[in-house]
Amino acid sequence: MVDVLYFAWVRERIGLPRETLATNAATVTDLIAELSAREERYALAFSDLKSLRVALDQKLSSFDAPLSGVREVAFFPPMTGG
């Protein structure tokens, strides 16, 4: 099981801040494909990966990173702190 978190407009498009999923996805890209196939709102949120960032266990990561052993995946737009 993996916790998947969504922030900012990704959260608004998908319509929830977090969910716990059972998945066999090997990489982040696989997980995105799995979610996008599930419902239109996911496909919409993940339609442009250039405008998305991913963190694995609260560390910025890349879309081709493996998910094995990861407990928390977070998707969000580029950060706007400061």
Binding site: F7, A8, A55, M79, T80, G81, G82
Partner: peptide
């Protein structure tokens, strides 16, 4: 902090709200 701290800003205006783009 601007691009690596996980904050997201949304501007709530008189005629709608918009996420600030990086």
């Amino acid at each position: 902090l601007k691009s690596r701290a996980p904050f997201w800003k949304k501007e709530i205006g008189l005629d709608g709200a918009e996420w600030v783009a990086a």
